[in-house]
């Protein structure tokens, strides 16, 4: 099993008030699954994504990622896990504005010490996969929204991570470009990648093989498409 969540709770403390963002979430996700996480606003989707992406740790519960317990790791250890295991695709792209597409894609490789010539080859290869070979020296503001998101996908792919996590990846795109990105995920999935994406659009979720529905921090339904 690639991802195992057991009895995961996540609380936020706002002064005296405690917000239970996740309450006892149990979840298993296997290699090469394509999972969509859905739910109303405030149901805990982003919180769950942040935990899965090792950007945060649970208040209690166990998170096993590829056989290692990441629930209690410190900042630096989590950074290493993120670098090795996770590829992020964000709703608002989150590219470095002053860096070229190529450099943006190289970033994860920089943080694991890949030597520069190999870095360049890998980044070019990833950009080729998303169909942006001829745009690699462009900066984000010289690219369309769809192209930017493709750069982000290339960046998520480049380090060959276990999981690609996408939080509303089509949220800032028009329907047609959104579909293009979804096609890209489809291809990645066919090539053996594990994909977890958050969306609130049923037709986007339809692309996946399994939909997990959250409500008030709990898994309400978990079913194959």
């Amino acid at each position: 099993m690639m991802i195992e969540l057991k009895e995961i709770n996540k609380d936020y403390h706002l002064g005296l008030e405690t917000v239970h963002a996740l309450r006892g979430v149990d979840l298993n996700i296997d290699n090469n699954e394509y999972v969509a996480i859905m739910g109303p606003s405030g149901s805990g989707k982003s919180t769950l994504m942040n935990l899965l992406g090792c950007l945060d740790t649970p208040s209690s519960g166990l998170y096993m990622l590829n056989g290692s317990d990441v629930s209690d790791m410190d900042d630096n250890a989590l950074a290493e896990i993120r670098n090795r295991e996770i590829g992020f695709v964000f709703q608002n792209f989150n590219l470095l504005p002053r860096a070229s597409a190529l450099h943006n894609v190289e970033l994860p490789l920089i943080y694991n010490g890949t030597p520069s010539s190999k870095r360049r080859d890998l980044a070019e290869e990833a950009l080729t996969k998303v169909g942006l070979k001829d745009r690699m020296h462009h900066r984000p503001n010289e690219l369309s929204g769809g192209q930017r998101q493709r750069v982000a996908v290339a960046r998520a792919l480049v380090n060959n991570p276990s999981i690609i996590l996408a939080d509303e990846p089509t949220g800032n795109l028009d329907t047609r470009t959104g579909d293009e990105i979804m096609d890209l995920f489809e291809t990645l999935h066919d090539n053996g990648n594990t994909i977890i994406l958050v969306t609130h659009e049923e037709y986007i979720a339809e692309h996946s093989d399994r939909i997990i529905r959250l409500r008030d921090g709990r898994v309400e339904r978990d079913e194959a498409v």
Partner: peptide, 15 residues
């Protein structure tokens, strides 16, 4: 935001 991006991609504190 740039710092957030870099950290998400695996930049450690000391970097």
């Amino acid at each position: 935001r740039e710092i957030g991006i870099r950290k998400a991609l695996g930049a450690k504190r000391q970097v």
